[in-house]
Design a protein around this nucleic acid. Sequence first.
RNA 1: GGCCCCAUCGUCUAGUGGUCAGGACGUUGGCCUUUCAAGCCGAUAACGCGGGUUCGAAUCCCGCUGGGGUCACCA
Length: 485
Amino acid sequence: MKPRVRFAPSPTGYLHIGGARTALFNWLYARRHGGTFILRIEDTDQERSTPESVQAILTGLQWLGIDWDEGPGKEAPYPPYFQMKKLPRYAEIAEQLISEGKAYRDYTTEEETAKLRADFAASKGLKDGDDLRKAGFKYSSPWRDKPEKLDRPHVVRFKMKPTGARIGFEDLVHGRTEKPDEDLDDFVLLRSDGIPLYNFSCVVDDHDMHITHVGRGQEHINSTYSQIALYQALGWTPPVFTHFPLIMAVNKETGNEEKMSKRKHPEADVMVHQKNGILPHALLNFVARIGWSHGNDELFTREQLVEYFDLKDVGRTNGVWNPEKLIAVNQHWIKNGKPEELAAMTVPFLASLGVTVTNDARLQLGVKAFSTRAKTLVEMAANLKPYYVHGATMDPSAVTKFLDAAGKDMVRRARAKLEAIAEWKAPALDPIIDQIAAETGAKKGAIAQPIRVACTGGAFSPGIGDTLELLGREETFFRIDAALA
RNA sequence: GGCCCCAUCGUCUAGUGGUCAGGACGUUGGCCUUUCAAGCCGAUAACGCGGGUUCGAAUCCCGCUGGGGUCACCA
């Protein structure tokens, strides 16, 4: 049977790095096995869900190249893919559970619940900031065994019936995972406004959508037990679960490692990496390696990722976000990328620097020349900009060091030779250094550096041939003459 | 605090009873060189602790310690 997997984000903000990796692992698994990747929007949190967030998530996935077979824009064959659009379905299942005595209506108001907590706190002599959970507070509804149907607001709770046995599941990476079913409580299925809660809608949807494998972060292990209880009550076969290790980040305030969060870690936002000039594939490659491995391999093309990925190779230990390594991976893919693709991605970065360019041969020469000199597209654009403006900005210390009398003499010699160059291409331009070296006996550095400074204003640039070709004949002479003047 | 998950270099990881414990990032020494990069060669650094099982444990079991997660009318 072909696997059917899903990514089910809640649209309460931008696409998170952890979410992106969850999506990636599921997507890879589907692609690897010829299965189906489903995108489902869990928008039942009315407080925090926004249409903008839905769009942000779609945009993020698209930027990463993670496409879905079913979901927003492709609402078949098990619609809808937005949970708020299938409220009647959840109500139907809830009703069924109530009629079977597996769930009950709880008319306790939020005020009453608050009072219960307050009374408990008082009886334990707790202070204001104390955590009731640590003191052992456990909610027990007075309505659990009262089947009356009142015309009053109520939540629907699942009726846990502990047997003293252990409840659990076979996790693909953790193996048998279980706990005593007495530890489970009567969790809420439907809020008083009829909107379902995660543990409920998730189970209903995974069942309705024929999901075969659920892969999600380890923070969901504890909710999985409750979901298993639901599957049992409903008589449904649960999917195969896989819980991925978490992506951690260092909390700069405390110095501790903790689950990467939107609030404390700006890099948790997938799109800030786009802004920072990270290639989408580099981010994918890097993120895939947190919690997953394929022997000693580090660098993967998209095709290799699909070819090699398997859930059984997912690890168990949490991984810490390592920005230096992301940069290294990014640098690798810039270095090994196709010039036309890199150029296309660089255009907007140049635009934001006020440089309007098209993806032409010249730009491609430029990104190629700087591909070993830029770690990000931001650096790439910054490196390229000076070649697209008229005249060079001179670095005083470089001028002092290389454009002295001897240096200028070298530049004059170069200028003379340049005059004779018919085809303004790097292979034709580069040899002038050797020629001048042969004529003067000077070291190449003493020749190339003055030329470099005259043409770029600074002491760093690609090889002289590439540099001059990039500049163009006219601009080269303009800058040389300006430097010699 | 209850429960759950986890434990190899600073970080990401390979390892599945017998390896000099390997790779990558980082740091670092050198080579190359037309600057800066890149590239190449080398160095650096780990099996948390204590018990078992075994001829033999990073690998299996138990305990401890440590880290993380989770305990909502959030997901």
